[in-house]
Design a protein around this nucleic acid. Structure first.
Ligand SMILES: [Mn+2]
Ligand SMILES: [Mn+2]
Ligand SMILES: [Zn+2]
Ligand SMILES: [Zn+2]
Lengths: 150, 150
DNA sequence: ACCGCAATTGATAATCATTCTCGAATAGTA
DNA sequence: TACTATTCGAGAATGATTATCAATTGCGGT
């Protein structure tokens, strides 16, 4: 069995686990998010699905992403510099370090970061569900590039 | 001197400090963000400026906010449930706890949170400028409200 | 205090991301 | 296989944001 089929099955299983009705469009979209490290935009997702031989409309991409967000399977990451939302599979909590120069998004998996949720709960009395942390800076590659130009 | 004039002067000083050309519109917008705890939307800012007897257009509100963001004086907080961006004066770093039920935004000033930036820098080699943390949950008031309904 | 000019404002139009509509297609169930 | 609620999708509608550009204004230099 080829890799592509495996990830589709993994996505189908995840949909079943969350009692979300299984459709080809949802399988492809979810499998893309589960396996890529792209943090893709709507447009990238749309092109990916069609590029893999599945029919899909933009409306369906939007609907599917909202559904996955509501089920806490994915998150929306605030706008890249072009003003587009990015999407990310988020079953394993992590945070994002974003290069303001080249828009690269780096994952950081770090347990310490989850402690912040407990603090927030203690400070405010909120019942906390989840949280999102984004760090802005310049990536090592862009640091070199910018240093040379100067 | 009345309070309103004081905050306008404070805003004017801040603009000068950041070498941003001083205009009435910018003074009012910045003073609103500096003094309110509203985390207002574009529309709220627009109405505030006109409500205080100043002329302003939506384009100017957008332009001014982008300018203040570029100068790291304010931040944009990801969409409330109505899909509107919120804006916040951000000279003193803090993070936000957001009620998913009533959209209330609570500030938390906590030094420990800034430590996350150092960690991110160590983990990734990025040169970090700033960061934003948002926690989602249900506020104490909505917890009561929801418990009664059930 | 006045000039000169680059920067800003603002009414409006244009753009573009997102949501809505509703008939057709489909998944899940028995 | 047949039934039915759900989902899909093409295109229209919406609505937030951005672009335009002529008129106005802030401000450094004189
Ligand atoms: Mn990620
Ligand atoms: Mn705040
Ligand atoms: Zn970079
Ligand atoms: Zn609440």
């Amino acid at each position: 069995m080829v890799q592509e089929q495996k990830t589709l099955l993994a996505a189908a299983d995840k949909l079943k686990e969350y009692k979300i009705k299984n459709t080809p469009q949802r399988q492809v979209i979810l499998s893309y998010l589960m396996t890529s490290h792209d943090h893709p935009s709507i447009e990238m997702i749309f092109n990916y699905v069609r590029g893999n031989g599945f029919s899909v409309s933009l409306a369906t991409v939007y609907n599917t992403l909202q559904l996955l967000i509501d089920n806490n399977l994915i998150i929306e990451i605030a706008a890249d510099s072009g003003g587009h939302m990015r999407y990310d599979y988020f079953e394993i909590p992590h945070y994002h370090v974003i290069c303001v120069n080249c828009n690269k998004i780096v994952d950081v998996f770090d347990d310490k970061y989850k402690k912040n949720e407990e603090n927030a709960q203690l400070e405010t009395g909120f019942q906390v569900f989840n949280s999102q942390y984004e760090v802005y800076g310049v990536c090592p590659e862009c640091q070199k590039k910018l240093a040379q130009e100067a």
